[in-house]
């Protein structure tokens, strides 16, 4: 296991450290996975790439207007899990999802469900800023246009302005709305992508390591933004930075080798983790 080879000397102190990092097949999630008024519920979710299983039996709730962070070492399946929440995994031919993922009690993998509608309700922001090679205005107007959210040009202008304001980008770009979105800085591009996502008024926003390609200042801005957005949206964020999870999220879920190890309020995860694997990860013994 690569993680062990790179572990700090502190690990050597634990005589049975190696066994500790293995995950039992009957591993159950510890902590508070379930909530009273869930927005999304996942039950016994398994995800496969061909025969390889990437996610093992994950059950968790996401409640309304909460920010839930998903942390874990590389390759633990947190991005795969996130992408199965708005069926972006459909684009991967070999990917297969089992179990139940519901939003407001409606199964997202039901045959009659309209993926287009689902993705309008569950938006997504990616690791690398990916604005379309269009103007800033057109980037934000993209979603409203394809979903027919604006009847007139005035409506559309309003949606664009509101979204850019919510993404705290308006002041920086209002003079150059018709210049290319790819000409912005990395942090601005990512906020543009957030504005694009919220322009269709989704209920849930998925963020897949949204700050990993940004510098600290741009990161701080995005984190601030996430906090503001949590008033109106439910946010699930995958992150590699534990500090970021600690700063922005209400609850934190720790993934390890495709299994969900622990879900608890963020404060508790970072001060008194229930599971020893979580503790090993957040104290930097591997990862």
């Amino acid at each position: 296991m690569n993680a062990i080879e790179r572990a700090s000397p502190a690990l050597a102190a634990k005589s049975d450290a190696k066994q500790n990092l293995e995950v039992a097949d009957n591993q159950v999630t510890v902590g508070q996975s379930f909530t009273d008024a869930p927005k999304m519920t996942m039950r016994n979710v398994n995800v496969f790439y061909d025969d390889k299983q990437a996610i093992h039996d994950v059950s968790v709730d996401i409640s309304k207007n909460e920010v839930i962070a998903m942390i874990g070492p590389s390759g633990c399946g947190k991005s795969t899990f996130l992408r199965s929440l708005n069926r972006m995994n459909d684009t991967v031919e070999s990917c297969r999802v089992e179990g139940e993922i519901c939003m407001d009690g409606e199964n997202l993998y039901a045959p009659k469900l309209d993926v287009v509608e689902l993705r309008a309700r569950v938006g997504m922001v990616f690791q690398k800023p990916n604005p379309f090679p269009k103007s800033i205005y057109d980037n934000v107007a993209y979603g409203p246009k394809i979903h027919g959210l604006a009847d007139t040009r005035v409506d559309l202008d309003e949606i664009v302005e509101n979204s850019l304001r919510k993404a705290s980008l308006w002041e920086e770009v209002k003079e150059r709305l018709h210049q290319s979105g790819t000409g912005l800085s990395g942090g601005q591009q990512q906020r543009l992508c957030i504005a694009r996502a919220i322009a269709v008024s989704p209920e849930v926003i998925l963020m897949d390591e949204p700050c990993s390609a940004l510098d600290p200042i741009a990161t701080a801005k995005i984190e601030e933004l996430i906090e503001e957005l949590s008033q109106n949206f439910t946010i699930a964020i995958v992150t590699h930075s534990m500090q970021q999870a600690a700063r922005v999220s209400h609850r934190t879920a720790y993934f390890h080798l495709g299994r969900l190890i622990e879900v608890n309020p963020t404060e508790q995860v970072f001060t008194m983790p229930e599971h020893e694997l979580t503790e090993a990860y957040i104290t930097g013994r591997f990862g």
Binding site: L118, K128, N130, Y142, G143, I146, R196, A197
Partner: peptide, 27 residues
């Protein structure tokens, strides 16, 4: 055309043909 363009468009709820028309072809 980078996969991230397709992902961005599909994640907005665009269909495949909308993605082709509005993002892929211009790029």
């Amino acid at each position: 055309v980078p996969q991230s363009m397709r992902d961005g468009s599909l994640a907005m709820g665009a269909t495949k043909s909308e993605t082709v028309r509005n993002v892929i072809i211009p790029a």
